[in-house]
Nucleic acid binder design. Sequence first.
RNA 1: GCCGGUGUGGCGAAAUGGCAGACGCACACGACUCAAAAUCGUGUGGGAGAAAUCCCGUGUCGGUUCAAGUCCGACCACCGGCACCA
Length: 839
Amino acid sequence: MHETKDKARGKQNFMLLTEFPYPSGDLHIGHWFSFAVPDILARYYRMKGKNVMYPMGFDAFGLPAENAAIKRNTDPRSWTEGNIKFMTKQLESMGASFDWSRRISTIDPEYYKWTQWLFLKMYEKGLAYRGEALVNWCPNDKTVLANEQVVDNCCERCGTRIEERKLTQWMIKITDYADSLIDDLEGLDWPENTKLAQKNWVGRSEGTSIKFSIFNFQFSNNSSISNKQKKESTGHIEVFTTRVDTIFGVTYLVVAPEHPIIQNQQSRIKNYEEVKKYVEGTRHKTELQRISEASKEKTGVELKGIKAINPANGEELPVWVADYVLASYGTGAVMAVPAHDERDYEFAKKYGLPIRQVVCPNYPKPICPVLDKAYAGEGHLVGSDKFDGMKSQEARDAITKWLEEKGLGKRKKIYRLRDWVISRQRYWGVPIPVIYCRKCGESEKLKVKNEKLRKNYIIKEGVEYKIIPVSESDLPIKLPKLDDFRPAEDGRSPLAKASKWVKVKCPNCGGKAERETDTMDTFVDSSWYYFRYTDPRNKKKFADPKKIKSWLPVPLYIGGAEHNTMHLLYSRFFSKFIADIGFADFKEPFIVRRNHGLIFGPDGFKMSKSRGNVIDPDELVRNFGADVVRMYLAFMTDYLQDGPWDPKGINGVKRFLERVYSLSLKIKNQSANRRTKIKIEGKNSKLEVLMHKTIKKVGEDLESLKFNTAVSALMILLNEMEKENELPVTSYSLLVTLLTPFAPHMAEEIWRSILGKKTSIHGEKWPKFDPKKLSGGTFKLIVQIGGKMRDSFEVEAGTAEEEVKVLTLKRENVRKWIGDKRVEKIIYVPNRIINIVLR
RNA sequence: GCCGGUGUGGCGAAAUGGCAGACGCACACGACUCAAAAUCGUGUGGGAGAAAUCCCGUGUCGGUUCAAGUCCGACCACCGGCACCA
């Protein structure tokens, strides 16, 4: 029933997307929360007349398979495939309306063929390239470790302290899209915190880059620089700042230990030995260690013999090296303004460097407060020559312009976002579809002088190879079977050991060539899977653009908040790229995003085996049935919020469904007509009004993902129906129809065996309510006196305001409260409340 | 440190600025039963009262309003993300 056609006449396509799971081997209650609850929505929208696709797949590459395979002496593929089989069975037990015909799996060569194809497209467009990146290296095991395998800076397996090593890796230039990854967030209906996390991750800062020229100490005798001395300057240091308004407060420069200036100026640095020792001392620490140690106490060494010139006032500045400056951010050098930056302040205090205030927080007063710590806020400029008195913001513009005119500064945006390293020295991933040819590399060596083309060549062990992307017709490059899939000792991928697989013939020259042996980060696989759902069996394209157009962008993507940054960012990037190569016409893949909460254990803690607070869904299904489990998950808490599992609470839903079943005993003239249309009988009776209200409420609640109050509305309806002695079969049918998305099995069972229908309830339409019947003839008016509830009575709907007031003032109860006080005014909110304000 | 989020009965939680605690769990009492379970019924925020009813109550303090859980300001606690990002 749930095989979704690409087109259904008169129906709008709707892909309800949930994050496809990693096949870890066992479905936990969190999976149920993620898939069974949105299934309620899928079924509801289907009944509302949408062509709903509710797809499912497996994100099946990744490290755990390798670990499990080693432990169980099997291979990653059979372990993973076994898990997929088992989990598929479990997923089927939810009664979710997945379209299994569209099932995808990232380890399927028919899927990863297109992962490789997309990689090649990125290579073609210059977005995939080789560059140096740091990896975690265990010196004991002599192997590369994934971030997950590093625990407290130590190797997970042997406990050795890890090092960082620079390896040449495949990278993707996600930074090319940095601006649109921020700017296109606007207009998306996403949780605010998710948007913010994306923004912070990209981390755009707008500021100014400034060149400070440097020169030799012996040329300078005083603080103003002569023309002669300028000519003899020996280079420059470029810094980036967002606070160029503080440039007159610069008292020194700081460069990161990796900064090239230290090598370039080696001969001029008088205390080079000391500097070298300091730099080497920081080298063997990983960046993480440096950050945690250096934030406790900053250290640094002055580069003696070198001075820099402040382009704003010509002043001579000392230059320091310190590891509180990161080589990987900005230019790896900063202008230090101790008066207005906490870090610089701390450093200046420690090493006795001058602190000069140039921003005054309370300017109109002639005296600025004496600083006992850095003032990083905005204010008015002082001690800044012709910029004195300007506000910080104005000054930033003016000073940048001034520096630009002098050719010493430039407006600049920089980003926290780094290019994405996708190489993994791992077995269980998608092979990177590239080969390296030595012969082509050598023969073309002399011809290719153009720097731009040089990026297509690599040098390995002193020999030049040409990078040759695998041709599309040779895809997929299948992952070979391996007996030993542990990483090689030299840090290469396990695939390097598969020599038969590695050796290939070069398609260009016919000579000996080698395959790339790294595999891809699994985030690559999952960055485009929703495209494949639109056309999962296409052999010619990763998806037909027409089908993409008919299903995407995704109208609603429900998932966990743990994907706030990486997965969503990479997916957005991929879909922007796919649009750029002409396969899609949208910028953003997910129009609406909602993060569901987490289910905690009964003890209120995150579920974990070690805590022993894990809830097994299979057992619950055996005891209660799938309908009870899914409906309880919908009912127990706000779907977008975390909530603890209450083992007793589930009884409430169980009772509810049993009572729905028993209620059938009250059906008037039991011979239910199979052609009976669902309609609501009764003449504006209380129950009739409630039925209309419930249709409205359940629908609205589902559309805003308030599953818990939708269930409670159904409970209220049942409670009222139970008060009747007899129930028209149509009313009972209505209840069952409204119940269908929540309890699909039981609704169908009742529909066929009690109501005698021959067609499925899952083909029924969602009932419509009559807006005119949402209230009975009267409403309960709340009477407040001085804002406190004192009385209430029934009033005919539509009674004029004046008359309501008269009726209210006639009430004995009300008169008693008023007593001899004067009525100052009366506020009447139609159909709700009347408030009498006394003097 | 910065940025988000959340604070409501014994518990899970509801409340377009308009009756705080819907719905459910648990509990208590009652009916059914020899009895228990299940089921059904009644009650269930705190305090006072025989009762009608009244007073207090949504993390704390203050403000806006006829009316505040909801809006504004300051603070406290917990959870999550980012973090020498210049």
